[in-house]
């Protein structure tokens, strides 16, 4: 028997809908924060992690992130984002309207992108600033995947609720 959102109890579908909505708000807020600190462009990202010579600008000072700060950023983001994508991955896995192939791709892709993003972050900090472009690209893929996953989950849940109300 295939387990889908249709075979799930109503209260679990309600939980999934609201968790997805709150995650959407949270993820969007985090993107606004990154826009505020880096303008979402690779040179801004590189400046945030590698610092900027205070003499070359009159803007806010930016110093290179310390090793301890890098470790803190990495472990907090990797663990929390893994949980976010665990939840959206579960939601996608229960969608009946998606093919098996698409489901597997959508579920696995964010975890790969997470590893690429944080590897790029370390390479950018201690290696070459140009790795900020890789970080930007993989983070963009991550964000797009998150919004696609959330849309698919909410669409599926709405469809199941509509079918349920029609049967009643």
């Amino acid at each position: 028997m295939t387990v889908t959102w249709r075979s799930m109890p109503g209260p679990l579908r309600t939980l999934a809908r609201w968790v997805t909505i709150v995650q959407l708000v949270g993820y969007t807020t985090s993107l606004v924060f990154v826009w505020h600190t880096t303008r979402l462009v690779p040179p801004g990202v590189a400046a945030r992690y590698r610092g900027v010579d205070p003499e070359t600008t009159q803007a806010e000072m930016q110093f290179p992130k310390s090793f301890a700060q890098m470790l803190t950023i990495t472990h907090t983001h990797l663990l929390s984002m893994a949980v976010i994508f665990l939840l959206t991955g579960l939601g996608v896995a229960l969608c009946a309207r998606l093919s098996e192939r698409w489901k597997r791709w959508l579920i696995a892709e964010p975890f790969v992108a997470l590893l690429v993003s944080f590897s790029a972050m370390w390479l950018m900090r201690y290696g070459d600033a140009r790795f900020s472009w890789l970080l930007e690209a993989s983070s963009a893929v991550l964000a797009v995947t998150f919004y696609v996953q959330s849309y698919l989950i909410l669409r599926e849940l709405r469809q199941v609720e509509r079918e349920g109300s029609q049967v009643e």
Binding site: T37, R48, P54, Q58, A59, E60, M61, Q62, F63
Partner: peptide, 14 residues
């Protein structure tokens, strides 16, 4: 002297 953040004293990101 006036010592105000964002004017005479620059802020530090983070």
């Amino acid at each position: 002297d006036s010592l105000r953040v964002g004017r005479e004293i620059r802020n530090i990101s983070g």
